[in-house]
Structure formats: C-alpha cells, structure tokens
Simulated assay, not measured.
Amino acid sequence: MTNYIVVKGTSGIGNRVFAVATGILYAQLSGRQLVVDWRDGSYSNSGTNLFFRYFDCPVAQSVEVLPATDSIYPTHWQNKLNRSLGSVINESGLSCYKDLSFDVSRLDYTETIIVLSAYTHKIGFMRPLFTGSASRFASMNNLEILQLVLQSNLSLKEDIRLQVEEFKREYFADYMIGVHIRYSDMKVPLSEVESSLASIIRSVKSKHPNYKIFVATDSQEVLSSFKQKFPVIISTNKWFSASGKRLHQNPEECEDLIQNGIEALVDLDLLAACDELLFASRSSFGLLSSMLMDKPQAIRHDIDTQKPLIKRVQLKLKNLAKKLKIGG
C-alpha cells in the first residue's frame, strides 16, 4: 500500500519551491510518494495544478493519485484536501501553519496521507532524521542540502527553459551581474542596493569592460530608476502592477496569472545564470535564485548578511512582527 506526502502551495514562487524541496527530501527519507498541490489560485483561476505546468519533477505526482480516505494527518484536512491552505485557515480560525502540517522531524506517521503546509523550507527541523543512510546530509548546511535536492530533482518545463535561453542569446554579455530587488511588499533599501552594485561594478569593469546588468524586480518605478543610473541594465518584458502591489497573488489586477508565474520563473533562471548576483535573502525568490547559480566561479552578494549583526537581528524581529501583526 502506498503512503503519500502532500505539499500544499502557498505564497510566491520562492516559498513554494522551498516547501517542495522539503517534501522531496522527506519523501526520500520516508518512502512516501510525493504529491504537489498548487491548485490554490495564486497563479491560476481555473483550479489547475500549476506545479506541473511550470516544472518537470520525476519524483512528484499530482493529486489525482490520492486515494479516497479519512486516514489523513493533520485531521483538519479530512474531506478538505481539494481546498487551498488559505481557505482552510480562514474557515478553521487557525492562525499557524503548523496546525495544518505534520512534524517533519518524525517518520512514524501511520496515516495514509500526511500534509505539509509551509511558506519556506523545513530542512533544519529534519536534522534528527539525518542518520544511517541519510547521514551524508548531517555535515551539510541547510542551503547546501536545498541546492542538492533542487538541482537533482527539479527543472523548468522546456518551453520556459527555451524562453530563458533565447533571452540569454539575444541580450546577455560575456559577463553578467544579476540584481534582484523585491520592493512592492518587502522593501529592500534602494540606497544599499545602489551602493553595493556600484562597488561590484568597480571591481568588474576593468576585467570585463563589456559587462551587463540584469535586473529582476517587482517595481516598474525601481526598474526605471536603475536604468537611468546604470545604463547597461537589461530586463525582461513582463507585467507590472499599476498600483505598485506585489506581482504574485494579485488576481484583481493581473489578467493572466499563469503567464505571471512563467515570467517570474524566467527572471529566476536568468538571475541564476549570472556570474555575480546581488540579492537580499529576506526574499525567498532572491535566495532561491542565488542557490540555483551553478557556475563554478559564481559570486553571491547578500545585502542582508552584509549588515552588522545588530541590524540583522532588528530586521528579523521586524519581519517577524509583520507576520504576527504586532504593532501598527
């Protein structure tokens, strides 16, 4: 009899991919069949499972394989597996993801179906499982494990990959500096991005005078500003919110949610194809793009880790307060 782990999609592309990576590793360690469910409507209004429109993942199957059963953990998901995480949270009054997710540090669940609900990876919580045949993971840090899992099991659909390759052939230079700027709902300090980028350019231009800068951002205003200040910037042609809201989970403004996801994935892969990348790891999208860089000499510049320790702690507390809705 087959047992299953279902990974529910939530939030943006980066969040979702990190959750899937957790599911892939847990499925390998537990012997369960991985099922990915991205029918929540963030990238489609039709109820389509968009994970399989965007990715090839040989170890994952879609929800159609799930049996009809009440043997589900957490029990909040009984008779609700076809629902989105957000709708179940709203209906149940639960305030935490953990109430709708199993504990990834355990392998002893007897239920046929266990559900993972997470907005980021849970690799750190899985460390008690890294024994015996899985002991090779014990000496690796979380990001190394994620990188290994994703690069071994996940790839873009061919049509999306071809869009990436076409853009690279037409616009990329011999040396590329990638910049990711999340600004709509998670404002990265632009002055820090500008000063860091200027520093990178000073170190690059003597060796690579024909360099270019690829910028991926969720703000058309930020993109226009950077193009005025750094004339060698290139970017993809994509949809922006006229009101300045975030690009994902914005069905009120975005007319083609599926294309919105494809545009995000193209940007993600182009960032990962650069020789150097400037990003802020507070953004799952920026962090994911840095992990997917596969050039041996790739250089990563994380604005958040460049801050003094006290500022990093203050930033984490500020972001935590936002999630918990503490303060004004």
Rank of each mutant, 00 (worst) to 15 (best):
S117E: 00
A173G: 06
S152R: 01
F230K: 07
W239D: 13
I299F: 11
S184L: 02
D108F: 01
V149I: 12
V222C: 06
P58W: 15
V63N: 07
Q259M: 13
L197V: 14
G286R: 00
G327M: 08
R169E: 15
Y4R: 03
Y54V: 02
L85Y: 14
G124H: 12
T22A: 02
V115T: 02
N237E: 15
D40G: 03
V232N: 15
A321N: 07
R83W: 14
I310N: 01
Y211W: 02
G23P: 02
D302Q: 01
L268M: 06
V222P: 04
Q220N: 08
V20I: 10
V88R: 09
D108M: 06
L247E: 07
A242D: 10
R32G: 06
C96M: 15
L278Y: 05
R202Q: 14
G9Q: 12
I201A: 13
Y171L: 05
L156F: 09
S290W: 05
L100V: 06
F55L: 08
S199E: 13
S219N: 04
S135I: 14
A242Y: 09
A173H: 02
S235D: 12
R246T: 05
P67W: 03
A242C: 08
P74F: 10
F167W: 09
G93L: 07
F214W: 10
H180C: 00
L25I: 07
S152Q: 12
I326P: 01
T69G: 08
L29Y: 08
E221S: 13
A272G: 08
V222A: 06
Y97L: 13
I13Q: 04
T131W: 00
P308W: 06
D56P: 00
D56C: 09
A118Y: 11
D304A: 00
K8T: 03
V149E: 00
E144H: 09
K325P: 11
R53K: 15
L81F: 11
R246Q: 15
I310Y: 02
N82A: 14
L197T: 07
K238E: 10
S241M: 08
G124I: 04
A280H: 02
K157C: 04
F214D: 01
N250L: 12
M126Y: 13
R16G: 07
L150N: 01
C57L: 09
L277V: 03
W239N: 12
D269C: 10
S196C: 13
S92T: 14
I213Y: 06
D37T: 01
F51T: 14
P189C: 02
T131N: 05
K168L: 10
G132E: 12
T69A: 08
Q78Y: 12
Y109I: 05
S105M: 03
A118G: 03
A198Q: 15
G93P: 03
S219M: 06
V65S: 14
T305L: 12
K8A: 04
R127T: 08
L265K: 02
L190M: 12
A264G: 15
A68I: 12
E166F: 09
P67T: 04
Y171E: 08
T217W: 04
A27M: 13
Q314E: 05
T69L: 13
E64V: 11
W38I: 03
G9S: 09
D103L: 04
Q151P: 01
V266T: 00
G47L: 01
I24A: 02
L162Y: 06
F230I: 08
K323Q: 09
L143M: 12
W239T: 15
G93H: 05
R300V: 11
N15S: 08
S95D: 01
